[in-house]
Write a protein that binds this DNA or RNA. Structure first.
Length: 810
RNA sequence: GGGCGGUUAGCUCAGUUGGGAGAGCACCAGCUCGACAAGCUGGGGGUCACUGGUUCGAGCCCAGUACCGCCCACCA
C-alpha cells in the first residue's frame, strides 16, 4: 500500500466491479422485504453533468447505499428525458450547419436523424453518474421515448380526455418564433433589456382632444381594439365611454375602464391589443372585444398588417412612428429598461399571440394533490418549500399541452373529414371509433416534455401494465430535485400518481441546495461561471467530491468551495493511512470485538454514538451535519485518539489489540461507506475475514454496551488538555495513565509549560460560574438542567484548578 | 412586484426547545516519534450586519432598517 491514497484507479475499479457483480441492481444485499425506491430526476438526453446533478447524485446515493446496507430492496432507477425543444434545438442547429432545415428534411426523416444523433452523441450523463459512484440500477435505464413509455404517455392523455379535463382553445400563448412553437410560462425566462417607450396620442373620434398612451411596441398599434384606464382614475373619468381613433389604421375604438390597468405607469392609459399581449387578452375577453393579430408566427408583420405586411416588427415600428411624427401624434420617446420574455432554449424574444392549442384543466386535477400535501402524505423538505408547493398547485393555471414540434409524443388525437375529434391510444383504436372507411388525420402537434415527465415514477415501472415491478416498487419513497422544477415536475408527478394509481408516488421530496459559483452568482455557461464536476472528481476523487458537496449543502443557496472537497480528500487519505497502520501490525489476525482496554470500549461506544447521530441526520435529510460528524469521529476519535492509544500495543504484537482494532476499523468503514464508498470498499477488501462486499454488508445495529465508556475517556482528554497547556500532570487511574502516556507522550513533550496562563483561565471560569450561581434570578428562572450543568462545570473547574496546585484567588 | 434564504474569525460555513462564541482552510509556534509533512500538539484572531423590544440572560425570539442572493412574475 502506498502512503498517499490515489483515488482514480481505485474508484474506477470498484465502480466496474460493483456494477459487473450486479450489486447496484434492485434486490442486491436484500435481507428484508421492504423496498426503498428513488427515481432519478431524468436528465435531458442532450445534457451533461453539472454541479447540481453531482450534489443530487451524492444525496440520493447516500440514501440508497444506507438503505441497501440496512437490508432494504433498493431501486434507484435511472433514465433520460427526451427533452422536446432542447433536443430538437440541437439537431436543428446541426442541420443548419449543413445548410438544411427540418422542413426540407420532412418530419419522418427529421425524427430519424434525431434518433441517430442520440445513438452517437446523447446519453452521456449516466457515465458521469457512474464515475461519481452512484449506485443506480443501470440495467433498468428508461427513456421517455421508449415504446412502453410512449404507450404510457398516450394512455395518460386518453385518461385525462375521458375525465373531460382536456380541451382545445384559442388563447394567447408564448410563441417562440425561432422554434415555431408555443411554450409554457415556465419555459419563458425574463431578461433585462434596453427599450424605448413611445408616448402616442390617440385623438378622440369626436375631434375634441386626445389620450396619450405609452407603448414599447408601436407596430402592435395596428391591432389595437380599445384604450383602457383604471376605473378610479379621476383624470380619465370623462373619457370612459368615448371613442378614440387608433393611429395609422384610423379605426374607432372605445375607451374602457378596467382595474388591471396600473394608473401609476406611463400615462395611466393602456392600449388594448388582445392578439399580442397577455394582459390585454384577458381584458379583451372580459369586455367582449375582437382579437385581431398583425404579427405572424414567424414574428414578422402578417397579411392583416395591410401595407406593412412582410416587414419586420422593427421596420413596421419605424413606419408607424414616422406616420405619428408627420401628424404630430408622437409626444415623446424615452429610454426604458425592462424585463422581456425570451425562450429559455434559444433566448429569442417571445411573441405573445393567439393560437389554437390543447389545454388541460388544473383546478380539479390538482385538488387531490393539494389534499395530499396538506395531510403531509407527501412532505417537502425543507418546510418552506412545502408551503410553496401547495400555493403553486392552488394557483396553477390551465396547462398548455401542445407544442408545434416534431420531436416528442405526438398527440393521440385524430380528426375525421366531418370535423369529429377522436382521442384514442392508437390509430387502430381511433379507427375503430371512427367506423369503417373513414379517413383520419392525426393532429401534428406533440406534447409538452413535462407531460411525460409527470409519469416518471409509474411509467418506469411499466404502467399502464400491471407489472410485478409496479406492484412491488410503487409507491416509492423519495424524490430529490432542484427548486425550480417543483411546479414543472414534482407537483405534477404527485397529481398524476394520485389520478392513475390513487397513491402518491413518494412520501418525501428533498429540495436540495442550489450550488452557486464561488463568487455567489449562479453557475451558468453563459456567464462563464460554471464548474464541471468531473474536474474535482478527476483531481480529488469521487469520494472527496461527494463529501465536499454534501458538506456544503446546508443552506438554500451554497457557494461552491473546492476547500470542502479537499477536506474530503484529506479524510479519505487519513482513513487509508490509519488502515495501513492497523494492517501492518495485524497480520494473521482476524477481527474480533473483544475489548479489554478502556480505549477499545471507548472507540466502539464512540462509533455507535456517531452512528446514531448520522442516522438521525440522514433521516432528516441533513447531509451537512452528518458529514461533519463523520469527519470528527474518523479524524479526532479514531485516528488521533484511538489509533494513538493502541499504537504501543500494536507494536508489541498484542493480538487482542490488533483483533479489536480490525473490528473497530470494520465498523468505522461501514459507517463511512455511504459517503465514501470507494475508499471504504478498497480497505474493506483487505480485511482478513471479509465475506461480502462492503456495499452489500449489513449496516451497524445499535449497540449501547460501551456508552458509559465514552464519558469515562473524557477524563483522560481533560488531563491531556491540562498537561499540554501547562505541563502539569493530573492524577489518573492505571488504565487512564497508559492511554495518557501513549497519546500525549509526556516523555517527549513537556507541554507548553504555561501554568500561570492556565491558572488564570481556570480562575476566570470559576469566577464566572460562581457569579451565575450566585444570581438568584438565574437559579430561580433557568431550567433545572441548565443550573445543574453550571454546578458541574464549577466543580470541574475547581478540580482542575486544584490539580494544577492553584487556589481560587491568587 | 411576489416568495424564499442569507449577513457569525482573513476565506467557506456550523451553531438543534434562549444559558460559558465553534469547525475546516489560511496564519503563528512547537513536535518532527516505526500510518499519514496531504502528519501531531498548542496558539492568535470575532461589537455574531444595524436599530429598538421581550427576558435574570439574546447569535438564537419579536418589530423595523440596510445590503447580498436564489426562485417566481403579463406594468404596457
Amino acid at each position: 500500500m502506498e502512503p498517499l491514497y490515489t483515488p482514480a484507479g481505485v474508484e474506477l475499479r470498484w465502480q466496474e466491479t460493483w456494477e459487473a457483480e450486479g450489486l447496484y441492481a434492485a434486490g442486491a444485499g436484500r435481507r428484508r422485504d421492504d423496498a426503498y425506491v428513488i427515481a432519478v430526476p431524468p436528465p435531458n438526453v442532450t445534457g451533461e453533468l453539472h454541479m447540481g446533478h453531482a450534489l443530487n447524485g451524492s444525496i440520493q446515493d447516500v440514501l440508497v447505499r444506507w438503505h441497501r446496507m440496512r437490508g432494504y430492496d433498493t431501486l434507484w432507477q435511472p433514465g433520460y428525458d427526451h427533452a422536446g425543444i432542447s433536443t430538437q434545438n440541437v439537431v436543428e442547429k446541426q442541420l443548419a450547419a449543413e445548410g438544411l432545415s427540418r422542413q426540407e428534411l420532412g418530419r419522418e426523416e427529421f425524427v430519424r436523424r434525431t434518433w441517430q444523433w442520440l445513438e452517437t452523441t446523447g446519453r452521456t450523463i449516466m457515465g458521469q453518474f457512474r464515475r461519481l459512484g452512484c449506485s443506480l440500477d443501470y440495467s433498468r435505464e428508461r427513456f421517455t421515448m421508449d415504446d412502453e413509455y410512449v404507450r404510457a404517455v398516450l394512455t395518460f392523455f386518453v385518461r385525462l380526455w375521458q375525465r373531460g379535463w382536456i380541451y382545445r382553445a384559442n388563447r394567447i400563448v408564448n410563441w417562440c418564433p425561432f422554434h415555431q412553437t408555443a411554450i409554457s410560462d415556465l419555459e419563458v425566462v425574463h431578461e433585462e433589456m434596453d427599450d424605448t417607450l413611445s408616448y402616442v396620442r390617440y385623438p378622440f373620434a369626436d375631434g375634441d382632444g386626445f389620450l396619450t398612451v405609452a407603448t414599447v411596441r408601436p407596430a402592435t398599434i395596428l391591432a389595437d381594439v380599445a384604450v383602457a384606464v383604471h376605473p378610479d382614475d379621476e383624470r380619465y373619468r370623462d373619457a370612459v365611454g368615448r371613442e378614440v381613433v387608433v393611429p395609422y389604421v384610423e379605426r374607432h375604438v372605445p375607451v374602457i375602464a378596467d382595474p388591471r390597468v396600473e394608473p401609476e405607469f406611463g400615462t395611466g392609459a393602456l392600449k388594448i391589443t388582445p392578439g399580442h399581449d397577455p394582459t390585454d387578452f384577458e381584458i379583451g375577453r372580459d369586455h367582449g372585444l375582437p382579437e385581431p393579430m398583425v404579427i405572424g408566427l414567424d414574428g414578422t408583420m402578417n397579411v392583416d398588417a395591410g401595407d406593412l405586411a412582410g416587414l419586420s416588427q422593427a421596420e413596421a415600428s419605424e413606419r408607424v412612428l414616422d406616420w405619428l411624427r408627420q401628424r404630430d401624434q408622437l409626444e415623446r420617446r424615452e429610454h426604458y429598461r425592462h424585463a422581456v420574455g425570451t425562450c429559455e432554449r434559444c433566448h429569442t424574444r417571445i411573441e405573445p399571440l393567439i393560437s389554437l392549442q390543447w389545454w388541460c384543466r388544473m383546478d380539479e386535477p390538482a385538488a387531490p394533490a393539494i389534499a395530499a400535501l396538506r395531510e403531509r402524505r407527501v412532505r417537502y423538505h425543507p418546510e418552506s418549500q412545502h408551503r410553496f408547493a401547495i400555493s403553486s398547485l392552488e394557483e396553477a393555471p390551465d396547462w398548455c399541452l401542445s407544442r408545434q414540434l416534431w420531436w416528442g409524443h405526438q398527440l393521440p388525437i385524430w380528426y375525421t373529414p366531418d370535423g369529429e375529434t377522436i382521442c384514442a391510444v392508437s390509430e387502430e383504436a381511433a379507427r375503430a371509433q371512427a367506423g369503417e372507411g373513414v379517413e383520419l388525420e392525426r393532429d401534428p402537434d406533440v406534447l409538452d416534455t413535462w407531460f411525460s415527465s409527470a409519469l416518471w415514477p409509474l411509467a418506469t415501472l411499466g404502467w399502464p401494465e400491471e407489472t410485478p415491478e409496479l406492484r412491488r416498487y410503487y409507491p416509492g419513497d423519495v424524490d430529490s430535485t432542484a427548486r425550480e422544477i417543483i411546479r414543472l415536475w414534482v407537483n405534477r408527478m404527485i397529481w398524476a400518481g394520485l389520478e392513475l394509481l390513487d397513491d402518491v408516488p413518494f412520501t418525501d421530496v428533498i429540495i436540495h441546495s442550489t450550488v452557486l459559483a464561488p463568487d455567489g452568482r449562479r453557475m451558468s455557461k453563459s456567464l462563464g461561471t460554471g464548474i464541471d464536476p468531473m474536474q474535482p472528481i478527476a483531481e480529488h476523487g469521487a469520494d472527496a467530491t461527494r463529501y465536499g458537496l454534501l458538506k456544503i449543502s446546508s443552506t438554500q443557496d451554497v457557494r461552491f468551495s473546492i476547500g470542502a472537497i479537499e477536506e474530503g480528500r484529506k479524510l479519505a487519505n487519513k482513513l487509508w493511512n490509519v488502515a495501513r497502520l492497523i494492517f501492518q501490525n495485524a497480520t494473521l489476525v482476524t477481527p474480533a470485538v473483544s475489548p479489554r482496554a478502556l480505549e477499545e470500549r471507548w472507540i466502539l461506544g464512540r462509533i455507535d454514538a456517531a452512528r446514531a447521530e448520522v442516522e438521525d441526520c440522514w433521516g432528516r435529510f441533513d447531509f451537512a451535519t452528518a458529514t461533519s460528524a463523520l469527519y470528527h469521529v474518523t479524524f479526532d476519535d479514531f485516528c488521533d485518539w484511538y489509533a494513538e492509544a493502541i499504537k504501543p500495543r500494536l507494536y508489541d504484537g498484542d493480538k487482542d489489540a490488533a483483533a479489536t482494532a480490525l473490528a473497530a476499523l470494520e465498523r468505522l468503514l461501514v459507517l463511512l461507506h455511504p459517503v465514501l464508498p470507494h475508499v471504504t470498499e478498497e480497505i474493506w477488501s483487505q480485511l482478513p475475514n471479509r465475506r461480502t462486499r462492503l456495499i452489500v454488508s449489513p449496516w451497524l445495529e445499535p449497540d449501547d454496551r460501551f456508552a458509559a465508556d465514552v464519558t469515562a475517556l473524557e477524563r483522560v482528554r481533560e488531563a491531556a488538555q491540562i498537561f499540554r497547556r501547562s505541563g502539569v500532570r493530573v492524577e489518573l487511574g492505571a488504565d487512564e495513565q497508559r492511554i495518557f502516556a501513549a497519546v500525549v507522550r509526556p516523555e517527549r513533550s513537556a507541554g507548553n509549560g504555561n501554568v500561570d496562563a492556565e491558572l488564570e483561565r481556570l480562575r476566570k471560569e470559576v469566577e464566572r460560574a460562581e457569579a451565575m450561581l450566585a444570581n438568584g434570578r438565574f437559579v430561580q428562572n433557568a431550567p433545572a438542567h441548565v443550573v445543574e450543568a453550571e454546578r458541574e462545570k464549577l466543580a470541574r473547574y475547581r478540580r482542575e484548578l486544584e490539580a494544577l496546585g492553584g487556589s481560587e484567588r491568587s
